[in-house]
Design a protein around this nucleic acid. Structure first.
Lengths: 349, 349
DNA sequence: TTTTAGCACTCTGGGGAATGGAGTGCTAAA
DNA sequence: TTTAGCACTCCATTCCCCAGAGTGCTAAAA
């Protein structure tokens, strides 16, 4: 059977109505939307065809039609009008973005929050490291009251620092030498290798040095390990409850638990695709089979990608969410993607 | 009317049963719990008295009794057996704590997560700064490919750092001088004062210096501002849905929204109290009037307190949560509260 | 004075049965 | 190929009934 232009038109109407109302749509309602060019009986025939072809479903014999995942897919691929954001919308996003954005890893956590409050769905945010990161540069700085600041720059350009309290005092004048030691022995290697090398040094350096080295290396190793383990931030979980499909508390609970617990099982976009849409059963994970996910990636630094995913019912507003999400991702890439590029300045309110 | 010992015993039984089952308790069930020392008619009289005195409530005339907020309060103050944690429980908490704990501000965020997964209720976590923090020390470090690492130590002992890309190159040899400039002009002052001083310097230093200074100061000002604004982390919101009192999606939604949005309106413990319990209407905020909050504070660094609050239904398991929460708070204080003290070492699995 | 047994009464929650409405599919005519 | 007409299906809502749980009260017993 052929998918005529009229069938597509009707499918589009049904999908959009269902996205809007979450109610099955009947033939009469379709006729109204088509401004009466056609009778309800004709529409009924078309609806029957679309159902047979697998684009629509019937909750029960005498209800209207709702889109099937296949129907959503066709809608997303062909029928949906790509939305562009209005000037006000982009302005608002820019304002949010420029507001306060500090280090790279804060970007990831904040990206999820921002997107969630912006699109009105729950989100998750992940950092996607290309390859394991290592320490690239160490620096120790003395502070007055005998504390030591350890600064570690990682191969992915993150810079982390922390105040350490040496167990035995180390004089400030020795810190450059210690920094040098760290830079020669502990850069470019993984966490376990760091520990191994530390052991080798244990009887080559003085006790107070070793204790400090130990703290620094432990800190650096924790940082390196942290970047291996995917950290997932979820935000706006409560938004789920806005939707009638999650009025069933158990469903909502399951999905929320899944999002906040099963780090790593969340979808990531296929390479190259800026925004990917996964509809219902297209999701690999069971917990998501009745929901949809829109996920986008953006560049931060030269060695990292950030991911933001939006989770919602299968009838989520694909056009609106995808538009906002890709604008976000593009803006973030522009701000953090390459070096020597500054955030677009925006007047603060 | 007097609150006899027997009345208290009965009240305790009712409260604990209700905490356990969320079902109103009738006179017969009470008799069973008291192992038959007394008849149900007697218990009925006592229950009627307790109701009249305001410790119990009746959902409707022919239902059992449930505790009123006043009843919970009495229970918490007098009747509840303070729980102590078993060796396994403390061991598990210690394991979680020692696992990975980096900088101070990560502590706050992670504390909420840990407590939430541990006690099985949603939590919020806040940093409570005593007084506004300022920058205490600046340090600029050059990296090979012309980037500059800015290290800022704040008056609250937090150390933050970030990689900057100067718009115009600044030679590495000039960085110590610039650091000195920063340390003399921009320490010990608030964010707006920083900007003012920066303006004053604008025509006293070379253009490329100024551009870099600008970036550093903007970064530092953002850090200072960040510590003024209370940042609230919430975790485990989905746990709410475990409880029958939040099966009403709207109630759950309201509370979740409140927790994730209304930063700052969340309860903080009165000074001195290590753990504070707020029952139902004792909460100032409307959104919490039908829930209870247990909040604890712990010390991190010398100038900061962290707060962790546990949110749940009024029938939450006060004894268990309070015990766990205070153990957490104590452990965190011990680990981060004073300087020169190290986390209790625990073998990592 | 306190406790207990007995009893009438109240209220809830759950399980049908009845009903109206929305929507369908099919047939036959346009 | 489209349309009007019609019988049919299924759901959601409402109403009603009833068992069960639990109460308060009275009057007798301790």
């Amino acid at each position: 059977m052929e998918l005529t232009k009229r069938k597509k038109e009707i499918l589009k109407i049904v999908v959009e109505s269902y996205i809007d109302t979450a109610e099955p749509m009947g033939s009469k309602a379709v006729v109204e939307k088509m401004s009466g060019k056609i009778s309800s009986a004709t529409v009924r025939n078309e609806l029957a065809d679309l159902t047979e072809m697998g684009y629509l479903e019937q909750p029960h014999t005498s209800a209207g039609r709702i889109p099937s995942p296949k129907g959503y897919r066709l809608y997303v691929n062909e029928l949906m009008e790509r939305r562009t954001l209005s000037a006000e919308e982009t302005a608002e996003i820019n304002r949010t973005l420029s507001d306060r954005m500090s280090g790279m890893d804060e970007v990831i956590a904040r990206a999820g929050q921002m997107v969630s409050s912006f699109v009105g769905y729950p989100t998750y945010a992940v950092a996607d490291h290309t390859g394991a990161s290592t320490a690239r540069r160490f620096e120790l700085l003395g502070v007055e009251d005998s504390g030591v600041i350890a600064v570690v720059m990682l191969s992915d350009d993150r810079v982390k620092s922390r105040l350490l309290q040496p167990e035995l005092p180390v004089s400030a004048s020795q810190l450059p030498e210690l920094s040098h030691l760290l830079n020669t022995h502990f850069t470019g290697i993984g966490a376990s290798e760091m520990n191994a090398r530390l052991m080798n040094l244990s009887d080559q350096v003085q006790g107070n040095w070793f204790l400090l080295l130990n703290q620094v290396v432990e800190y650096a190793a924790a940082l390196v390990r942290e970047s291996e383990r995917q950290q997932v931030f979820t935000d706006g979980a409560s938004q789920l409850l806005r939707f009638p499909e999650y009025r069933d508390v158990d469903k909502a609970h399951d999905l929320m638990r899944f999002m906040s617990e099963s780090k790593s099982a969340l979808p990531v976009p296929a390479d190259g695709a800026p925004v990917q849409i996964l509809i219902g059963p297209e999701n690999v994970n069971d917990a998501l089979k009745e929901s949809s996910v829109i996920v986008a990636s953006y560049d931060i630094g030269d060695h990292m990608r950030g991911l933001v995913g939006v989770v919602g019912p299968t009838r989520m507003d694909y056009a609106a969410v995808a538009a906002r999400l890709s604008y976000f991702a593009e803006s973030l890439s522009a701000m953090f993607g390459r070096k020597n590029q500054l955030p677009p300045k925006e007047e603060k309110e």
